[in-house]
Amino acid sequence: MRWRRVLVALMLVALAAAAGAGLARSAGDRGRPDPVRAVAAELRCPACQGESVADSRSPIAVAMRQVVADQLAQGRDRDEIRRWFVQRYGADVLTDPPDRGVRLLLWGVPALALLAGAYAAVRTLRPRAGRARPAAPRTPGARATRRAWRVASVGVVGLVASVAVVTYRLDPPARPAPADPVAVALQLAHDLETQDRYDAAAQMYQEALRERPDDAVRLRLAFALLRSGDSDGAQRTAREVLGREPNSPDGLLVLGLAQRTSQPVEAERSLRRFLAVAPAHPAAAEIRRLLSPDPAPNGR
């Protein structure tokens, strides 16, 4: 009998060792095949609810994945990219922000629950002796019973009344603004522009426009379209703005620049109007140079 027990123990020890080896092997990096996905999985999609950039199909997430891919291609590592995103969009862009401030509650509350539960369990397992009293049968007097009845009935009716009163008093609460997807889209588009990715930037502006039809955004879109080489699109967008506000300097500027390839005459008219409307515009000097009768040979 003895040797059998020893054998069983030995076998268990051997199995435990093998299991330990398996665990150790498994604990190493699982080597995700797709580094973009690995980084994107750590970023929260600002336009969705509870989805990571890796999983989401919203255009913002697509653009953010593109940014990640670009940066990886430039040789940045995971932490650098994470830091880059945190700098731009705040710590909330991470699916797992560092546990600081309020987030310490995430660990404090469960720890407290565990401790309180353990304390209660120990108390239950070892009740202190000698304090037990037989539960005294309660026989409340008739007056106390009547008082309880009155109080309780008032309470019950009061509950109904309070619901009614609160309903008529209460305006629907203003919904706390969620992370503003438009702002993120605009920021992202701007970033894309600084990286000369005007195509993607234009897409982002279009996305933002769908949420917030705003002429300022439309003008940014027109510029991005112009720079990405889509002069038709730029013209169309600029005309949309000019339809509402015929003297918009930026609208005239984009329109004129976009017309230059196809309709030089109209382009000149638009640009002259631009100069008339906004002589002090930062781009005015450049345009004057363009329109001067003897353009420099390398003029854009």
């Binding site: 199995l15 299991a19 080896a21 398996g22 699982r30």
Partner: peptide
């Protein structure tokens, strides 16, 4: 334990 050992040595599930 045997399951952990076997699965852990054959694959890397974490």
């Amino acid at each position: 334990l045997g399951t952990v050992a076997l699965v852990g040595l054959l694959s890397r599930p974490g």
